[in-house]
Each structure stands twice: as C-alpha cells, then as structure tokens.
Amino acid sequence: TIYELISKSKFTTKFAKLVDDHPSVVDLLNSTSANYTLFVPVDKAFEDIPDDHKKPSKEFIENALLYHIAKGEYPARKILHSYTLPTAYDEELLGGEPQRLRSSVGLGGVKLNFYSKVIAADIAAKNGIIHAVNHILVPPPYVGRIITLFPDRFSTLLLAYEKTEFVKFIHGVNLKGSTVFVPTNEAFNWLGPKANAFLFNTDKGRKYLKAILKYNIVPNATLYTDAFYDERDTKQQTEPAEELKSEHYDLPTLLGDAHISVDIARIFGFASIKVNGYSRVVVPNGVAKNGVIQVVNRVPLPPHKGHRHHHSDNVGGIEVKDLMSRLADYV
C-alpha cells in the first residue's frame, strides 16, 4: 500500500513519522477500498522548517497531511491534463467540499500550487500512486491574504480595497466558497487615467469603485477550470467538466442582481477562460481557503442594460459617463 511504501523508504522518513501520529491518515493510506494519489515530500523538504518553529496543532498537521492526498488515481500523464485535483482535506469554508491542489506544467516539469515540484513520478502502490515532491504542501490561506503577498501585481486592487473599506464589508458577508476575479495593475490601467482618477480620487467615484469590487466576487460558488462547487440555493445544472468542449456559466455577484458570465473553452486538453466576453483569465485557479482566485487582464464591468456582453477591448480606456451608466442601478 501507499502507507507501507512510504514507511519503508529512506527518502520519506519524516513524512511517514508524522503520518504515524495520525491513525486516521494511516488507515486512509492503507485502505484498498478506494485509490488515492499521494504527493509525498522528501525528507529534504522539511529542512525549510526553522528549528525554533512553534509546533502547529495536531489538527493543523492532520489537515496538512490530508492535503497531500488526492482522491483518485492521478498518474503523471493525467496530471498533465488536469488543472486542479481534489484532496482528502474537506474545507469547511468551501461548504465542506474537498480543498484542491493546483497543478501546472512548465519547462521545469509539474508544479503544485506554484511552488512544490514533482521530482519523482508514478511510483505504483496497491491502492494508488505516489509522486515525490520537493516542498511541503500547506493548505492555502484566505483569498485576501494571497492577494497581499503580490503587491507588484495587485497594488492597485489593494489600494481600491483600502479606499472603499472593502475588507470591513467583506468580513460581514457569510460565504461558503467564492470565485474572486482579481484584476492586475495592468487591468486597472486599461480603464484609462480619467476613469481611474474618478474612481480613486473622488468621493462619488469611490462608491462606483466599491460597486466594481462587489461585482468581481461570486458568492457561494467556486469555479475552477475543471470543477464547480455550487453552494447556492439555486444550483446551476452543468455536465461534468471533462466531457464538454466548452461551458457557459451565468453567475450572481455581490452586486445586487448583476450577473457575471464565464465561458470556458477547451481544445486538445487546454482550457481558456473569458469573463463577460472580453476579460481573459491570465492566471487561473489560485486555490484559497475560502474560494478560488482567477486573475484577469481587464476589470470585469457589468454590461449595459439590455446588452449581454461588452466586447470593447479598446486601448483608450472607458469614459466616466459610460462607467457611471453601467453601474447606475447599483450605486
């Protein structure tokens, strides 16, 4: 079994020792009633932890161990065509759904959650597969915390949160998962200097800025490229993601009755995501404790009343009058 293999290996002694302290995890990795994929950190991965580090709680360690276990069999060839993988760690803030690992393939090979690299693949076990990784996988933090870690990409958005006291607002919203469309600094630049001066430097504009921030969050529905956790009262019926060439989602936002539309197109195992027909997701599936981050290259705005989409990709930005008319009903 997976458990027996990691217990005998001289490369995974530290992870195996932690597993031994958690009988339920031992049972899972020994169980033959279902197949699993373990991403096991090699002993060298534990060298990053400082000696004087305060020991985390038993519950935290157990959750972290479960986060290394994907539900189902994921040989390397299947990971190449996966965007996210469901783990054995069920996240309460996603409505009790499995927290996911983000997988990506680049010149350096397969990486999980941007930082942990697969260094040995496809070790077969009776109840699944083992891949060795070079960094410990930690369950992800909150959406807001992740955004603050990248000020070089998201400083304009962070300023928008500050100017509108958005953090105070969002803390009062009860969410079971969320999809957060996160505009880069360049996405705000695209609005143009007039619109930005209005939004950031006038009292009136800040109300519109707050409306945009609300519009960029889908509550209680967590949409990954290859999975959809729908915790809303009125669920949207969709087929399993793998089967389809493309999907269309029409999702409610935190901005009144304004909906945001998402199209996922698939071709030869690759997928691209567009929001409202013009904003491209440039970094998909940033997994977070309370949802998923989809980084976009244009600020998503509600379409004009009576128009489903706004296809404008013009460089000159948006007129303040146009911006105000799109958001008039919500401010």
Rank of each mutant, 00 (worst) to 15 (best):
L5H: 13
S7W: 02
S7P: 11
K8D: 14
K8M: 11
T13Y: 02
K14E: 06
P23T: 09
S24I: 15
L29T: 13
N35L: 12
L38H: 03
L38I: 02
P41L: 01
V42S: 08
D52A: 05
H53K: 10
S57M: 01
S57H: 07
I61H: 06
A64P: 00
K71M: 08
Y74W: 13
H81E: 12
H81N: 11
Y89E: 05
E91L: 01
E91G: 04
L101Q: 02
S103V: 13
S103K: 05
S104A: 14
S104V: 02
G108Y: 01
G108V: 08
F114L: 13
S116Y: 00
K117W: 05
A120T: 10
I130E: 09
N134I: 07
G144P: 08
G144C: 03
R145L: 13
I147L: 06
F154S: 10
L158S: 12
F166Q: 13
V167A: 12
I170T: 12
N189F: 07
K194W: 08
F198S: 06
N201E: 14
K204A: 01
R206L: 08
V218S: 02
A221S: 08
Y224F: 13
D226E: 11
Y229E: 03
D230I: 04
L244N: 05
Y249V: 03
D257K: 11
D257L: 05
R266W: 12
F268S: 14
G269C: 12
Y278W: 12
S279E: 02
R280V: 06
N290M: 13
N290L: 06
G291S: 09
V296H: 14
P300S: 09
P302T: 00
L323S: 04
M324Y: 10
S325R: 09
